[in-house]
């Protein structure tokens, strides 16, 4: 798309959308939002970059290695955080019962594993949405291979 207005506005607004997405992820236990919503906001900023500048340049920003690392890393992070409960002598994904320090309600570093799980979910949702967008947005060349 060759539109100077869209490019200028999205260049200005993308960092703020990403900052807001990270805010929603990290404040998931304090304010409305959480891992799913924040990850979707971060992913939408990357998709905005892709459609306002260049799809190829956008897909190079999040390479296949990085997205697969985020994707499987998010799931593994969730499982590892869940194992904390077993290591402390309770059930899988246990929070207060296992004795995870909860902190003061209202502080940023509080609520035990909820804070940690939201980070994994956020990374996973963001990488899933971006990868899905770039997988479906590619065209086909003359040989029928997807680009």
């Amino acid at each position: 798309m060759e539109d100077i207005v869209v490019r200028a506005v999205s260049r200005l607004i993308v960092p703020f959308i990403q900052l807001y997405g990270l805010y929603v992820i990290f404040h998931g236990h304090l304010s409305p939002g959480g891992g799913f919503a924040g990850g979707a906001i971060v992913a939408s900023s990357m998709i905005l970059y892709g459609i306002s500048f260049n799809l190829e340049a956008g897909s190079r920003k999040l390479s296949h290695d990085l997205s697969s690392l985020l994707e499987s890393g998010g799931a593994l992070w969730y499982l590892l955080v869940g194992l904390i409960g077993i290591l402390l002598g309770s059930n899988f994904l246990a929070n207060k019962i296992a004795g995870v320090p909860l902190g003061t309600p209202g502080q940023l570093l509080s609520s035990g594993i909820i804070f940690l799980l939201a980070m994994g979910i956020g990374a996973k949702v963001a990488s899933t949405m971006v990868t899905l967008f770039y997988s479906l947005s590619g065209g086909e060349d003359s040989d029928g291979n997807r680009t």
Partner: peptide
Amino acid sequence: TGALNVIAAIITDYRAFDTLGEATVLFVA
């Protein structure tokens, strides 16, 4: 749970195992 957001507390503490399933669905998809 120490969280002020009741929904976040439900999906990542009371029903955390269900959310693990959701993450797996995303991964498989």
